[in-house]
Structures are given as structure tokens and as C-alpha cells.
């Protein structure tokens, strides 16, 4: 694995870890289940902190995903084939970015969505996140490629 790929892989792992943590932290569960009481994890119960962190890692995910897609189109690396698994994962990530982007737009002032739309986006984002976690769990122990 080339240095460039290694760096991207580690950035992806860190980004997904924090996106998942800060995403689940949007629900009031870490305080209830005393996870935020563990020394060093108190920030998980600070909604404004986890909200800002989720946005920051989303910025990194969007930037990195765009980089990888454009890089693949421009450089067409020899010997790389896109498997159905990678297609499935890419669709899930794209879905997360789209639903997340719409939720970010919803959070701006003066953009009231209908209650149905808000619930639909929330549930879609959560379902896609669970699907991606399930995908990673299925591939645990194998040679997982994150992109």
C-alpha cells in the first residue's frame, strides 16, 4: 500500500469513528448510560460540542470522498476493480452525505422543514449509519478497505 493510500485510510478510520460517536451523541444516551461519566468522555454529553465535531468530521468526509472519486476518474489506477461490495458501501456513504447535507440545511435559520421530512431524514440518516456499521462488522477480521 502506497503512503498516500495509507494516510487516506487512517484519515477515513478516524473520521468514521468520530462521525459515528458524535452522531450517536446527538441522542441523549451517553449521559443516561453513564458513558459520559468515564474520564475523558464527558464531552460526549455536551450536545453543542458533539454537534460541531460532527460537522467538522463531515467536512473531512465530504472533502476526502470527493478527492478519492475525482482521483479515481483522473488517474484510473491499474489493477483496481470496483466490486459490488464497494459499490454498496459507496451508495451508503453517498446516502449519508446527502441526508446529512439536507439536515445541515435544515439546521440553518429560516429553513423550516415539515415534521414528516425531519423525521424521514433523521431515520434515513440513522438507518444508513447502521447499515455502514453492519458492513464494517461483517468485514471485521478480513482485509478491510475503507475506500
Amino acid at each position: 500500500m502506497r503512503l498516500n493510500e495509507k494516510i487516506i485510510r487512517y484519515i477515513y478510520i478516524i473520521t468514521f469513528t468520530f462521525l459515528t460517536l458524535t452522531g450517536f451523541a446527538q441522542m441523549p444516551i451517553f449521559k443516561r448510560y453513564h458513558i459520559a461519566d468515564i474520564p475523558g468522555l464527558g464531552w460526549l454529553a455536551q450536545f453543542y460540542i458533539t454537534h460541531a465535531m460532527h460537522y467538522i468530521f463531515a467536512v473531512i468526509l465530504i472533502g476526502l470522498s470527493t478527492y478519492i472519486c475525482v482521483d479515481y476518474i483522473l488517474n484510473k489506477p491499474q489493477g483496481y476493480t470496483i466490486t459490488s461490495r464497494v459499490y454498496a458501501k459507496s451508495i451508503i456513504i453517498l446516502g449519508l452525505i446527502i441526508t446529512g447535507g439536507l439536515m445541515v440545511f435544515k439546521n440553518l435559520s429560516g429553513t423550516p422543514y415539515s415534521p414528516f421530512m425531519i423525521s424521514l431524514l433523521d431515520l434515513s440518516h440513522l438507518t444508513l449509519c447502521m447499515a455502514l456499521l453492519f458492513y464494517f462488522i461483517l468485514l471485521l477480521g478480513r482485509s478491510v478497505r475503507f475506500y
Partner: peptide
């Protein structure tokens, strides 16, 4: 403003894909 930080970061999300394209183009 409670949502102020989030609103500023939302703007960064618009720049992120541009940064990605520029990075890939530079590598190419």
C-alpha cells in the same frame, strides 16, 4: 447565538468538495 458555530461550519461543507477536486487535480 447557539446555532452560530454550526452555521459557520455548514459553510465549510460547501468548500469541502471543491478542496477535494483541487487536491485530486493537483495530484493528477
Amino acid at each position: 447565538e447557539s446555532m452560530g458555530t454550526g452555521d459557520k461550519l455548514a459553510m465549510a461543507m460547501l468548500i469541502a468538495p471543491i478542496a477535494g477536486v483541487v487536491g485530486a487535480a493537483a495530484r493528477f
